[in-house]
Design a protein around this nucleic acid. Structure first.
Lengths: 235, 235
DNA sequence: CGGTGTGAAAGTTTTCACAGCG
DNA sequence: CGCTGTGAAAACTTTCACACCG
């Protein structure tokens, strides 16, 4: 991997943006939405950073990749910044998603309300097990995986989630790619081999615990993210 | 965040190890276990890297943080390296884990077989909902969250998972910390405020899709250079 | 040979520090 | 004033390249 950057054709910059910046963008957005819901109108880079354990400079630098959104002496207007960030991340429009694998985890994901809040909808769910096909989960009929190409085409779906056992994940990935899917979230604990034009994000639940195991074992000192209001005057 | 490094008191090095190295370690381990299961005895840094999209030098450098594991001209012996990596990550011994939140996702996690393979066991599950407490999910009785401190103490549990709605996550985190938990995997879409000695790993399912949305959107934007729209801020 | 381990170089990301603005 | 936006410096991570090994 020569580079962790991303080609970008965005108006405010023709430069590439580091992946880690985009991941922080999602955190900023999540925090901003919470602030907005609690009625806050504006926020400074320092405040936003403190909530997430980042420095003020980091917040400003990250946003600077995409344009100028702030007001000197004031900070950022929550509503404006939320709209801008959703434009950047692409979540101002709805994303229909297909899911393959209607086991335990897949069924739970079908019921997860958090996707809708960010404009993602699981439009169709698939499985290869005849015992599951035709059944209804969370109001959605499970379809046979052979229907995947037709559904993807008819509904113009670009994103997919893989929630099948490790042994079947590569095969499912191949079918998603063949059906025209452009991005995959992979919950199976394997690394997928995919053509370079297909984007992936991997989530391995056991690895998350493993990272924690290391951290706890090595008693990592965390120098960050202590936002409770115990600190009176920060000046 | 002044530093993403980790103080380590390990024998082979008293140097600190970047977090990103530890995350790759988990990927190496996962791949090695797959190779071992398929009967492969040894593997070179180049082969292992190719399976994961990393360079040979990266693999060697990463391993080099922890010691010398290879044989020049041969590569690494899968069984030896697996054992060494599990020692480093701390998964050569069993980790009992508590889970708080027995909703859709929590119940699915109780049934997830992947944890056991890496030596994690969900020993107890908790909820605050009286309708759920006392019920059995995946063979485990759901307990009331008030029992948390006692169970954590009696079973010597150090890790916890938060699988409750966003609004309740901080309160649950506080209770986990009060009970003596040292590391938390947080599935709720909020950033937790925690004392620095408590480790966290965050998994936000909507954010994973959001990252994909960005990647897919910007990969396709090629020769589309439009004039910058008038920005509000201090331009 | 084919491969590891590792300094040194190259490249990337974060922090610093300050001009400038409302 | 308080805060943004941003070059420049510092810190960190990855890649290179090569001595050395079986």
């Amino acid at each position: 991997m020569p580079d962790s950057r991303i080609p970008s054709g965005d108006p405010p910059s023709d430069q590439s943006v580091p992946k880690v910046v985009v991941s922080r963008l999602s955190l900023y957005l999540r925090e901003l939405q919470r602030l907005q819901a609690s009625g806050q109108q504006t926020i400074s880079s320092g405040q936003l950073g403190a909530l997430l354990g980042f420095s003020d400079a980091q917040v400003r630098k990250d946003l600077g990749f995409f344009g100028q959104f702030g007001y000197p002496g004031v900070g950022y207007r929550c509503d404006e910044l939320i709209h801008a960030m959703r434009d950047i991340l692409g979540t101002n429009h709805r994303w229909p998603v297909v899911m393959v694998g209607a086991g335990n985890l897949g069924q739970a994901l079908l019921g997860y309300r958090g996707f809708g809040r960010q404009n993602f909808t699981i439009e169709a769910a698939f499985d290869a097990d005849p015992a599951k096909v035709g059944g209804t989960v969370q109001g959605l009929v499970i379809r046979h995986i052979d229907d995947l190409p037709r559904v993807v085409r008819e509904k113009g779906i670009r994103l997919g989630m893989i929630v099948v056992p490790a042994e079947r994940a590569q095969e499912v990935a191949d079918r998603l790619v063949a059906a025209g899917i452009e991005g995959i979230v992979n919950f199976a604990p394997v690394t997928l081999a995919l053509p370079p034009h297909v984007q992936t994000v991997a989530v391995d639940l056991a690895i998350e615990l493993e990272q924690l195991s290391f951290a706890v074992t090595n008693k990592l000192a965390k120098a960050v993210a202590e936002p409770p209001p115990a600190e009176p005057g920060s000046g």
